[in-house]
């Protein structure tokens, strides 16, 4: 809608603050309601996010972009997308055929099982997983950790890392997964870290590094956090709420940090 009114409104003149956040600030108001432009922008973003949920991940293309010699393609017990949305329990289990594929691929007792699952945003995985994995693998190897064959899982939930890690007899699991698409970030990726993964682990026993996307956490901050978790978990022999992230916040390290102008 191109209805440009000239309005002197304190609630719109703060729009330069948009440089600090992607949040929908400085919208102004008509009466006390939201201006139509803001509503139309919202509807556009909602339509895009709704569609993003339904785009399937191209696993073949993903595999080509990963610098890993051994890749195993797996599927959860879910058979189609509608079922994926309604049956999280099945998304946490491997299909029987995938379980046997994984057994065949198993190589001793690796330190780390590395898993990529589509989750709720294929776009997140396409955009970020190759770069993160291709930086992560050398970092892991540099620390002399052994890694199981890289697992790509269709229709996977976060806890799919538990049966996979258990089957591989891995000491730790790392799950990269597409997060639920937001209006302003349809391509946000999360990383979940679990020490001694096995079926029945609770969410309190995992650590999460979320919001990895262009306007969120950058790759190197995410990797710093992940390497910290790996090292600490080795010492403490656990993960989850008792393993506190002691890395300096992303704000302070890699990201551009803005002073809080309200307190200058």
């Amino acid at each position: 809608m191109k209805n440009k009114q000239l309005i002197a409104d304190a609630r719109e003149i703060i729009s330069p603050l948009k440089s600090f956040t992607g949040a929908r600030i400085a919208l102004g108001h008509r009466g006390s309601s939201m201006p139509l432009n803001a509503n139309l922008e919202f509807q556009l973003a909602h339509a895009q996010a709704r569609d993003a949920v339904n785009i399937p991940l191209d696993f073949a293309q993903l595999a080509q972009q990963l610098h890993s010699e051994e890749i195993v393609r797996l599927q959860s017990a879910v058979e189609h997308h509608a079922e994926y949305l309604q049956r999280p329990d099945k998304g946490r289990l491997l299909s029987l055929s995938s379980l046997s594929t994984l057994r065949d691929a198993s190589n001793g007792n690796p330190d780390i099982a590395l898993i990529i699952a589509d989750g709720l945003s294929s776009k997140a995985i396409c955009s970020h997983a190759p770069a993160v994995v291709n930086q992560l693998l050398p970092a892991i190897h540099a620390k002399a950790f052994t890694v199981a064959p890289l697992c790509l899982v269709k229709y996977g939930r976060v806890a799919i890392g538990d049966p996979i890690g258990e089957c591989l007899n891995a000491k730790m699991s790392i799950v990269l997964i597409g997060e639920r698409p937001g209006l302003s970030s349809p391509d946000s990726m999360g990383i979940y870290f679990t020490y001694q993964p096995k079926s029945g682990k609770t969410d309190a026993e995992r650590n999460c590094i979320s919001n990895i996307h262009q306007k969120g956490l950058d790759y190197s901050s995410a990797l710093d956090k992940l390497m910290f978790l790996i090292n600490e978990a080795q010492k403490l022999k656990l993960s989850g709420v008792q393993l506190k992230d002691q890395t300096e916040s992303a704000v302070k390290s890699q990201q551009q940090c803005h002073q809080n102008f309200l307190l200058d």
């Binding site: 603050l17 948009k18 956040t21 949040a23 992303a250 704000v251 940090c257």
Partner: peptide, 22 residues
């Protein structure tokens, strides 16, 4: 609820001001 994907102080402050103005 002034959330920000990296907890950026200025980004949080911007939303606080915006919210208080409403």
């Amino acid at each position: 609820q002034p959330n920000h994907p990296t907890d950026d102080p200025a980004g949080i402050a911007a939303v606080i001001v915006d919210g208080l103005l409403y």
